[in-house]
């Protein structure tokens, strides 16, 4: 038996955080499985999406935060669109990912989290995505140096790959990253002035 449900674990406090963060009522789910039936990625997940909700309903929060499933969700919104109880499952997945990052839980889908991190760092640095660097850093990070490298020259000659980043949006992105970091570190009561920006 993989899990034993202990009475004390049912509805722990963190469920409320997940519910607030996602804006969803976890209890609403009646486990019909329509989300999983239509999930394009379910075959590659460790548990189907409906079971992520079930784990939360039963208080297996720590287990849920360590699932591959939450990182393999493509946010395609199919589940959200078709849920008969109108639970926005994609939003719950977002909340779980946010919390997992906050808690420093190691992602079982390292490639996905690494990509997200590098992506945001290039956005922070240049304001817009710079593919050359993104792919290069990602391949370095995953020790898979030549992945998709055959495509680069083709794309370049088709005029679809830039060799140098564009800095036009840097100011805006920089301001946002800085401001978001500041309001997150300051308490909700404190008042902070907007940075000079656009």
């Amino acid at each position: 038996m993989k899990h034993v449900i202990k009475r004390e674990q049912l509805r722990p406090d963190i469920i409320q955080t997940i519910e607030e963060l996602s804006g969803q009522d976890i209890k609403s789910c009646y486990q019909c499985g329509k989300c999983s039936a239509g999930c394009p990625i379910a075959a590659d997940m460790d548990v189907p999406p409906n079971q992520v909700i079930r784990q939360l309903q039963l208080g297996f929060v720590d287990e849920a935060l360590r699932l591959k499933t939450i990182w393999l969700c493509a946010s395609c919104e199919t589940c959200t669109t078709r849920c008969p109880r109108e639970v926005d499952l994609a939003a719950v997945m977002d909340a779980l990912r946010n919390i997992a990052i906050q808690k420093g839980i190691r992602s079982p889908e390292r490639a996905v989290t690494l990509f997200n991190k590098i992506f945001l760092s290039t956005v922070k640095r240049y304001g817009r995505v710079f593919e050359m660097e993104l792919i290069g850093m990602f391949n370095t990070g995953t020790l898979n140096f030549f992945k998709d490298m055959t495509k680069a020259p083709k794309l370049f000659f088709k005029g679809r790959l830039k060799l140098f980043p564009n800095f036009t949006g840097r100011k805006m992105a920089n301001t946002v990253f800085k401001d978001v970091k500041r309001i997150k570190s300051s308490g909700p009561e404190e008042n902070s002035e907007p940075s000079k920006g656009i």
């Binding site: 329509k34 999983s36 039936a37 189907p48």
Partner: peptide, 25 residues
């Protein structure tokens, strides 16, 4: 489980369903 989608393929209807008891599509 509930079915998510049905579509026509050739002369068949493909029913995309789920069995939640086994956790299988």
């Amino acid at each position: 489980g509930r079915v998510s989608k049905i579509y026509e393929r050739g002369d068949k209807l493909i029913v995309m369903g789920m069995d939640t008891l086994s956790g299988s599509q």
